[in-house]
């Protein structure tokens, strides 16, 4: 049993009058991959974005309840969301590389956090991150070209590499493989498994197989409710809630 990394209790999220997350409590463990599954629009992204306070940037979004990271309330008035986001990195649902060079895309985070003392160290971080993001071989000769000029799947891997370049403790990934071919998907899943040694990873996915392959814990969301949360093996073989069962069986066939 791993220690609890993130502990959310009684979380509600409103977009204006829309009640997007309804009283969700969940405990995310360290050194674990947690998968969020559920039908489109059920609030997976919304809940994920609560975990690094990305919802702060949406004016109409309102979050209540408590979310603790290592026992500290991340919604406490004293918490600087900037510091939080350095600890809790994120890969977004839509790839969003900076309109800068591939190199600068990766180097930006380490630069503003002062992770490299000189150019050589920065080069090293960039190469390591791109390798872990399974994209190094494709871009190593064109690091000075714009990241926006890559294909959709390459951009997604670039964004993964960018997120791990800052060495976050928790990595939130919103459908990181939605635009990837099976080979790149396998590489990213390998990366996720490797990251688990040091970090905890939360991944949103629409692929049941992927959830089953990479995660140890699975949470099933439905219309803003957390319907079921538990060991991945247990959820997939022996779901307790009928909604979970119909979703899983409907998808898997």
């Amino acid at each position: 049993m791993n220690d609890i990394k993130i502990s959310a209790s009684g979380v509600d999220v409103f977009y204006g009058d829309t009640h997007a997350i309804k009283n969700v409590s969940v405990e995310i463990e360290g050194n674990t991959v947690t998968a969020f599954i559920g039908p489109s629009g059920c609030g997976k992204s919304t809940f994920l974005r609560c975990l690094n306070r990305m919802n702060d940037t949406i004016d109409i979004a309102r979050v209540t309840g408590s979310i603790l990271l290592d026992g500290e309330d991340i919604y406490d008035a004293k918490v600087d969301p900037v510091q939080l986001r350095a600890k809790v990195g994120m890969v977004f649902q839509k790839p969003n590389p900076f309109p800068k060079s591939i190199y600068d895309n990766i180097a930006y985070g380490p630069r503003i956090h002062g992770l490299a003392r000189n150019k050589a160290e920065l080069d090293e971080i960039v190469e390591k991150s791109l390798r872990r993001g399974a994209i190094w071989e494709e871009v190593k000769d064109r690091l000075d070209q714009p990241g926006t000029g890559l294909s959709g799947g390459q951009q997604q891997r670039l964004c993964i590499a960018r997120a791990i370049a800052t060495e976050p403790e928790v990595l939130l990934m919103d459908e990181p493989c939605s635009a990837l071919d099976p080979i790149a998907t396998a590489q990213v899943e390998e990366l996720i498994d490797e990251l688990r040694q040091q970090y905890s990873v939360v991944i949103v996915t629409h692929s049941m197989q992927q959830a089953a392959r990479v995660s140890q814990k699975t949470a099933f969301f439905h219309l803003g409710d957390l319907v079921e949360y538990g060991e991945t093996g247990h959820i997939f073989t022996n779901p307790e809630d009928s909604r979970t069962e119909s979703y899983i069986t409907g998808r898997i066939g």
């Binding site: 690094n52 990305m54 940037t57 969301p81 900037v82 510091q83 986001r85 350095a86 990195g89 994120m90 977004f92 839509k94 969003n96 590389p97 900076f98 309109p99 930006y108 985070g109 503003i112 956090h113 964004c159 960018r162 997120a163 370049a165 800052t166």
Partner: peptide
């Protein structure tokens, strides 16, 4: 400027001003 760029920067831990 697309909001996704802002999210990307905030997501890697940049401050609002950065």
């Amino acid at each position: 400027v697309p909001p996704s760029i802002r999210e990307a920067a905030l997501g890697v831990g940049a401050s609002k001003m950065q």
